[in-house]
Simulated assay, not measured.
Amino acid sequence: MRKILATAATLGLAGLGAIVPATSAHASTACNNAWNATAAGNFVAYNGTNCGGDRLGITEGQDQDWGNSTGSFQGSDTNQATSLIHKGTTTMRVQLFNGTGDDWAGGHTCLTQGEKYMDTLDNQYFTSGVEVNNQISSHRWIWSGCGATLNS
């Protein structure tokens, strides 16, 4: 009887171990694959989690208004980002804003090169307290200083 209970417990734990890591490993694998496929020097945003869905934009530069008709991000791209890739070739950060304009004011946060990507922006916040998910309206590259950084 003890052998049966021990075997059942072992199989149950093994099954749980196989299920739980698979979900997070899948997310990391999807973004890692997208990061590997991205040309060096670029910042990319997607409207889906796990670097999926539509690619909103890809750029080596800044874009002060994701909702206008200029730059890499245009029109309906504003307030749609759910996952991000940072494949910069320097230690610059991508500073993200929930506002627009070249004064770069308002709530912001940064994605550092060390993060590589964010498979979801849920539970990430701008310095203003606004959640980052589906609220990015502009971005720029900066060398230092940010006030807040995204953490996976």
Rank of each mutant, 00 (worst) to 15 (best):
G75A: 08
V20D: 07
A27E: 10
I136V: 15
L13R: 05
D77C: 02
W104H: 03
G75F: 06
N68V: 00
C110G: 12
K87M: 03
G52Q: 11
F73Y: 15
L13G: 12
H86I: 05
A22G: 04
L56A: 06
A30W: 04
H139D: 11
H139A: 07
L56M: 10
C31Q: 11
N123A: 14
N98D: 05
V94F: 05
N32L: 13
V132M: 10
S72W: 08
V130A: 03
H86N: 15
A27F: 08
T70N: 02
S28H: 15
W141M: 12
D54G: 04
L111A: 13
D119G: 06
Q74M: 05
N79Y: 01
G48H: 05
T82D: 05
T82I: 06
G129A: 03
M118Y: 06
T38H: 06
N133Q: 08
T78F: 00
K3S: 11
C51A: 08
M1R: 11
N32E: 14
K116G: 07
L13N: 07
G114T: 11
W35P: 02
C146S: 10
N47M: 07
D103C: 06
G17Q: 10
H108R: 13
D54F: 01
W66Q: 04
H139V: 03
R140N: 01
L11E: 05
G67N: 13
C146W: 07
Y125R: 13
W143D: 14
M92K: 13
G114V: 09
N134L: 02
F73G: 03
A9N: 01
N68K: 02
T82P: 03
G12T: 09
G52W: 07
Q113W: 06
L111Q: 13
E115G: 10
S28M: 10
L84W: 10
A6S: 04
T38K: 05
K3A: 09
P21M: 08
R93N: 14
G52S: 15
T89C: 07
R93I: 07
S128G: 01
Y117G: 12
N50S: 15
N134M: 03
F126A: 01
L150Y: 07
N123H: 14
